[in-house]
Deep mutational scan, measured.
Amino acid sequence: MLDDRARMEAAKKEKVEQILAEFQLQEEDLKKVMRRMQKEMDRGLRLETHEEASVKMLPTYVRSTPEGSEVGDFLSLDLGGTNFRVMLVKVGEGEEGQWSVKTKHQMYSIPEDAMTGTAEMLFDYISECISDFLDKHQMKHKKLPLGFTFSFPVRHEDIDKGILLNWTKGFKASGAEGNNVVGLLRDAIKRRGDFEMDVVAMVNDTVATMISCYYEDHQCEVGMIVGTGCNACYMEEMQNVELVEGDEGRMCVNTEWGAFGDSGELDEFLLEYDRLVDESSANPGQQLYEKLIGGKYMGELVRLVLLRLVDENLLFHGEASEQLRTRGAFETRFVSQVESDTGDRKQIYNILSTLGLRPSTTDCDIVRRACESVSTRAAHMCSAGLAGVINRMRESRSEDVMRITVGVDGSVYKLHPSFKERFHASVRRLTPSCEITFIESEEGSGRGAALVSAVACKKACMLGQ
């Protein structure tokens, strides 16, 4: 009897593995994704193909990295998701002549009506938060230079001027797309009239992360975010950046690689679950690469896999709870928690219980395998993109072996128990001629924006502006 049951459990697990095998990517698959990513990057950089390229390769006008001589107080704003952060950054000489960066910050959550109302409502709310922060720190009387981390696709015309191309991540505030974001912020500050600010720089969160990590390690020339969304930036040779005049030196390019796949480059790798996630998203047909990796989508992918296993009578005796059938019910943090389970399955059992399920031991094991399959594919897909960037940098610099540091931020990278190990191992397999160091950014977005502002202020002083 026991043997029969054991055989049935083994057969069930084997069927589960057959279904989950769809998520496995072979090294040849990853090399294919990497080569296609490089081709799209090239198209994004070139003037004649930029418009139709899915990977936009947006110039950021960040050319210099901090040298350690900029000092002063800077205000930093960070808008990239449902939370908005205001930070005071003091850049100065530390002990023994070292450079020191001290920060104080406060988080504000953005109400739904500000995210989806008008641009005026959104930026009025942001300036209200700045006003509140300055009151708390008794700094209303000071006109501070301000660095703005704005983590949406922007076409820069200068370091302090950028046109919002399109909202992502659930934002829909009308009247912002096609307009200068810094102008919208300046107008809102003017409307309030109770404080003055000098907006000197606007950067993407990947750029802010790279600059913040450069402060720790001067070989950091790539910034990457794996959180709600997924994106990367890197220092490109100016001669390859056709959208900006000049051939000397390097400029940081914001790849906006989340949109890779929007022209069909990933079609052969998309599964039924991916198509369902895409169809029910706020932007169907867009940001397809990001939807395979980002935390906004990972939990939902797992939920759809679990429903398939229920329908195949391989999980929960073929019956799903009402909660499990509800879109968004299986949160991405559950994926991390399930994979963090120590082996007694308590954590998995508790999560499934909150979803109205009474799982068996085998159910718990199957749910864990589903989570591992989805998150491992995410790590491997992400590795193909980064390997594409790094191999490109090595080739354009004609280096036999390139040493490089990548600064990384984002909740999936930082909080998932195995993502970074799987990701690092896969990147290294795909970049055999590179020695890569990964560092995690601390308060990256805010500190990085302030350091970019410090560079901009120093330049302005040198130019006598």
Rank of each mutant, 00 (worst) to 15 (best):
Q24C: 15
L430M: 05
A259T: 13
A449Q: 06
M238W: 02
L306M: 10
A114P: 04
C461I: 02
N240L: 11
Q18H: 15
V203L: 05
Q38N: 06
N204L: 07
R369C: 07
W167H: 15
T361K: 06
V338P: 01
G328V: 03
V154R: 09
T326F: 09
L165Y: 11
W99A: 09
E128C: 06
N283D: 10
D4F: 07
E395K: 15
Y273G: 02
D42F: 12
V203D: 09
K56V: 07
A11L: 13
V101Q: 07
G44R: 00
V62Q: 01
M381G: 02
K15E: 04
I348N: 04
E268F: 04
L304W: 08
R422G: 06
F74V: 12
P66K: 03
S453A: 13
E300C: 05
F84Q: 02
G162T: 05
V253P: 00
D311T: 08
Q286N: 14
K102Q: 15
L184R: 06
K169E: 11
L355D: 00
G299S: 04
V203F: 02
E51R: 15
A460H: 05
P432N: 03
R186S: 07
H141W: 10
E177D: 14
T405M: 04
R333D: 13
M393K: 04
S69T: 10
A425W: 03
C230R: 02
D187G: 04
V452Q: 11
G294T: 08
K190I: 15
T118A: 08
A6K: 07
V199D: 13
V367K: 00
L45S: 01
E14W: 04
D217F: 03
L307H: 04
S280N: 15
K32I: 11
V241H: 10
N83Q: 08
N240Q: 05
T228I: 14
D158W: 12
M107C: 06
R36Y: 07
E52K: 15
D73F: 02
E128I: 15
L88K: 03
F84R: 04
C252E: 02
N179D: 12
D187L: 06
G117D: 14
V455R: 07
V310S: 07
D29I: 00
I390A: 11
S445E: 15
N204P: 07
P153L: 05
D29H: 15
C371S: 07
I126Y: 02
Y413F: 05
T149I: 07
G258A: 15
K102T: 06
K13P: 14
Q337M: 06
E440I: 10
Q286G: 10
E312I: 07
V182Y: 07
V222E: 02
V412C: 07
H50C: 08
V335T: 06
R345T: 14
S396H: 08
S127E: 07
I19P: 02
T326H: 13
R5D: 13
K296L: 15
H141K: 13
T332Y: 03
E120N: 05
E216C: 03
A201E: 05
T82V: 10
T65I: 07
T118F: 05
V310R: 02
A208I: 03
D42M: 06
V408F: 05
D409F: 10
T228M: 12
K90A: 09
E279R: 12
Q219V: 12
S336V: 11
L271W: 01
S131H: 09
T342L: 06
F419I: 02
P432T: 12
R275L: 09
Q98N: 13
C382Y: 04
Y289F: 11
K13Y: 14
A379K: 00
C457P: 10
V305M: 08
G444D: 07
I159L: 13
I348D: 01
L185E: 03
G249L: 00
E300Q: 02
E440M: 15
R369A: 10
S445F: 14
F171R: 14
A232D: 04
M139L: 15
S54V: 14
T118D: 06
L184S: 08
F150N: 10
M210L: 07
R392A: 02
E48R: 04
D187T: 04
Y413T: 03
M238G: 01
G68W: 07
M87F: 07
V181D: 12
K140S: 05
C457K: 12
A370I: 10
R186V: 09
K39S: 10
M238N: 03
S396E: 14
W99N: 06
K142I: 11
A259E: 10
L276Y: 13
P111C: 05
S321G: 13
R377E: 00
E442H: 00
K161S: 05
R447C: 11
Q219F: 13
E196H: 03
Q323H: 07
D29W: 02
G227E: 08
V338F: 04
I366T: 12
R429K: 14
V86N: 08
D73R: 03
Q323G: 13
S418H: 03
S398W: 09
T342E: 13
L243W: 08
C382V: 11
H218F: 04
V86S: 09
I348R: 03
L58K: 11
T65R: 11
A201L: 08
I110Q: 05
K140F: 09
T255W: 04
D400C: 14
E440H: 09
L271S: 07
L314R: 05
K142C: 12
V89E: 01
L304P: 04
Y214L: 11
R303V: 01
I225M: 09
Q138I: 04
D78C: 15
E157H: 11
S151M: 05
Q26Y: 03
Q286H: 14
D344Q: 03
G80I: 07
E440W: 04
D217V: 04
I19F: 12
F195R: 06
K346D: 03
E272L: 08
Q106K: 12
T65V: 15
H380M: 12
G72L: 01
S64H: 11
E237F: 11
E435W: 07
G318R: 06
V389A: 07
S426P: 02
N254V: 11
R275Y: 12
S212F: 03
L451H: 08
H424W: 11
M235F: 07
M235C: 00
C382R: 02
G294D: 04
V244I: 15
E93C: 12
T49M: 01
E290S: 06
Q24T: 07
L357C: 13
G162N: 09
F269G: 00
D29S: 11
V455L: 15
D158C: 11
G162L: 08
E272R: 10
S100R: 12
D205M: 03
G356S: 07
G448K: 10
E95H: 06
L20H: 00
D132T: 04
E421V: 08
L415H: 07
L307Y: 01
D194R: 02
P59V: 03
E22W: 10
P66V: 12
T149S: 14
V338W: 02
P417Y: 10
R192Y: 02
T405A: 08
E96N: 11
D73Y: 02
P417Q: 07
K459H: 06
H218W: 02
K420W: 05
T354Y: 04
E93M: 11
N350Q: 05
G94F: 12
C457Y: 09
Q106S: 11
E339M: 04
N166D: 14
N391I: 07
P145D: 04
D29T: 03
F269Y: 03
L184A: 12
E248W: 04
L243H: 15
E290G: 06
E95I: 15
E196Y: 08
R358I: 07
D205I: 06
D344R: 03
R447K: 13
I126M: 03
Q24M: 05
M251P: 02
V89Q: 03
D365A: 12
G178F: 14
M121P: 04
H317F: 10
K169W: 13
S453T: 12
N180R: 15
H105L: 09
S445G: 13
G162R: 10
D278V: 04
V55C: 12
R368E: 02
K12G: 15
G68I: 11
M37V: 06
K414N: 03
D247R: 09
V207M: 15
G264F: 03
F419A: 00
I159H: 12
A329V: 12
N166K: 14
D274V: 00
M34H: 03
V199W: 09
K142M: 13
T437S: 14
S398A: 07
L266V: 14
F152Q: 14
K420V: 07
A53H: 02
D217E: 07
K291R: 04
Q138P: 06
L314A: 07
L75Y: 02
Q465T: 05
D198N: 14
P153V: 08
T361C: 03
M402T: 13
E22T: 07
G80V: 08
D409N: 14
S373I: 14
